[in-house]
């Protein structure tokens, strides 16, 4: 496994009026890893993920993708750069077919005149590609033409994950993909996440479920009060320690942290201005 850094952020901050949702936050994701992101409710995990995926523009800070500075103004720009996200609010269209959901916003037209002149979509090709992609990921559904609303919660989430896995070229971000799922369905989705990683895509997994995170993550980013307080190897800490750091019961200095490569000079300079507000 390489240790190349795929996505790196330094000094991100974001405030909403008086609420500091993110304060001088760092972030590191390596190639080929599943990075668990844990933190209490309201710690600012979703805010961080939104900043990394273009869903919001941070007030300060810099982001590097494969060493190149990037600043996404909207999710579309992040997606064009190869970053795909499953947001906490499920982004599927329940009345549409599975294959339509996989190709949502990226529909293909038929070749030739039917596509160019009559603007006809190539539904057969999209269905074929979707069916194959779902089979590749080991997701079992009855028919690719089923409406998403006829699927179980786990299957719906699987469709959302399959979509990001189909289009991502750099990395995949999932904000609580197993929330509201049963035990069996949760394990299906976790399996899916492992399979996505094994296909070479690094995964950022935000979750409140410690056993899940410890089961699949290679490293864990511990988030507290709007910033990363620790980055640890999953094998180096116990679940209790991680939770203690996350809740502030223990100091981050008490756990063995991962050394992150020092960022480039330009990456470290514009620091947030909001630290220590809380």
């Amino acid at each position: 496994m390489t240790t190349q850094t795929v996505l790196q952020a330094r000094g991100l901050s974001k405030r909403y009026g008086h609420v500091v949702a993110m304060a001088d936050c760092d972030f590191d994701l390596r190639a080929g890893e599943i990075l668990g992101v844990i933190g209490d409710n309201g710690a600012g995990k979703s805010t961080l993920i939104k900043a990394l995926t273009g869903a919001l523009v941070p007030d300060t800070g810099v982001i590097h993708l494969n060493g190149e500075p990037v600043s996404f103004r909207n999710p579309l720009e992040a997606r064009r750069a190869g970053i795909e996200t499953v947001y906490q609010e499920l982004g599927v269209a329940p009345a549409l077919e599975v294959s339509q959901n996989l190709f949502l916003g990226r529909e293909q037209r038929r070749p030739g005149l039917r596509g160019s002149l009559f603007r006809q979509l190539d539904k057969p090709a999209m269905r074929r590609a979707s069916a194959e992609h779902m089979a590749d990921l080991g997701i079992r559904i009855q028919s690719i033409r089923q409406r998403v609303e006829t699927l179980s919660g786990g299957q719906r989430q699987a469709v959302a994950v399959a979509r990001v896995a189909a289009w991502a070229t750099r990395l995949v971000v999932m904000d609580e993909p197993t929330a509201a799922l049963g035990v069996r369905e949760t394990h299906q989705v976790l399996d899916l996440i492992l399979r996505v990683r094994d296909r070479g895509l690094p995964v950022v997994l935000i979750s409140h479920d410690m056993p899940n995170v410890f089961q699949v993550a290679d490293r864990i980013h511990i988030h507290r009060l709007g910033r990363r307080v620790a980055l640890v190897n999953t094998g180096d800490v116990t679940m209790d320690d991680a939770v203690a750091v996350m809740t502030g019961a223990r100091s981050p200095a008490d756990v063995p942290q991962v050394q992150v490569s020092t960022p480039d000079e330009d990456a470290s300079s514009p620091k947030g201005t909001d630290h220590g507000e809380r």
Partner: peptide
């Protein structure tokens, strides 16, 4: 898509 889930529509651009 817009009628079904405008939020999802926005997220896919």
């Amino acid at each position: 898509t817009v009628g079904d889930n405008p939020h999802a529509a926005e997220l896919v651009g």
